[in-house]
C-alpha cells in the first residue's frame, strides 16, 4: 500500500532536482522552471500529509486549501517573473544569469 514515506521521498527527490536546477542552470527561464518543480514538491508533501494524518477533517482540508493558494501564487509569480525576464532581454539582450549583476554590491 502507499504510505506517507513514499510521498515524502518523492517530494524530497523533486525538491532536490529543483534546487539543483535553480543553482546550476544559467538560463533564467530554466531557473523559473526549476522553481515550479520545487513548488510542486511542496504540494506533493502537503497532499500526502492531508490524506494520512490522524486529524479532524477540517484540519485535513487545510492541506487542500494551502495547495490551492500555492498554485495561485505560483501563477502570479510566474507572470511577473516572465515580465521581468522579457524586460531584461529587451534591455540587455541576454537572459544568462551570469550577465545579470547590476544589483551586485
Amino acid at each position: 500500500m502507499i504510505e506517507l514515506t513514499h510521498f515524502q521521498i518523492l517530494s524530497g527527490f523533486l525538491f532536490a532536482i529543483g534546487l539543483y536546477g535553480v543553482l546550476a542552470r544559467r538560463n533564467a527561464i530554466l531557473v523559473l522552471m526549476s522553481i515550479e518543480l520545487m513548488l510542486n514538491a511542496v504540494n506533493i508533501n502537503l497532499i500526502g500529509y492531508s490524506i494520512f494524518m490522524n486529524a479532524s477533517e477540517s484540519h485535513r482540508a487545510l492541506g487542500h486549501v494551502i495547495i490551492i493558494f500555492v498554485i495561485t501564487v505560483a501563477a502570479a509569480e510566474l507572470a511577473l517573473a516572465i515580465a521581468i525576464i522579457l524586460r531584461l532581454y529587451r534591455n540587455k539582450s541576454s537572459i544568462n544569469t551570469d550577465d545579470i549583476n547590476i544589483m551586485k554590491w
Binding site: 502507499i2 490524506i51 490522524n54 487542500h64
Partner: peptide
C-alpha cells in the same frame, strides 16, 4: 514521529 491512519480523502 507521526500519528498516521490509512489513506482516505477529504470530502
Amino acid at each position: 514521529p507521526t500519528n498516521l491512519v490509512s489513506r482516505r480523502g477529504v470530502d
